[in-house]
Amino acid sequence: MVTGLIGRTAGRLLVPFIFIFGFYIVAHGHLSPGGGFQGGAVIATGVALVLVCYYYRECMEHFIEAKNFKLIESAGLILFICTALAGLVLASGFFFNWLNASGGLFGNAVEYGANVGDLFTAGIIPVLNFAVGIEVFGGLSVVLLYMFAGLKETTKEEDDAEPHNFAQTEELP
């Protein structure tokens, strides 16, 4: 399994923009269409592109470990539940929007009706969006990594050592 130079270079160029676009979808979930699930899936697409462009073993050795993605996924779900539980502790109930219009983080007051859109509004909704985005990103990446780990793929050195596999099979009587 060889990905050529063109594929690798294009993937390396595209991956940061895919990550930024996914982060934008997650962060603007309360202003524009999108949200945690969609943005997390977009970010996981970038991880899939990295895995396709580079060898699985290279990814494991250099910058990706499946263990870290498991931690990321669990952290996302825990952040989601803790934000919801904080509403029970600090305000009146589970999933209460205790950050809305409080002046703190994401607590700016919103103008009613049609407005330009302020990123720091909507209380716990952006926090929950980020939590779900982190969880979906980690979860889909873990699935991809486990499925790639199940593949029996050759390394670049093995491919270079035996470049004529197809020709040899054709010459059999």
Binding site: G29, H30, L31, N100, A122, G123, I125, N129
Partner: peptide
């Protein structure tokens, strides 16, 4: 006015139907 979210779909998904 109740959630502060401009996006009604997100307001329902993450607040009313959390």
């Amino acid at each position: 006015e109740q959630t502060g979210s401009n996006n009604v779909v997100t307001a329902i998904v993450f607040d009313f139907r959390g």
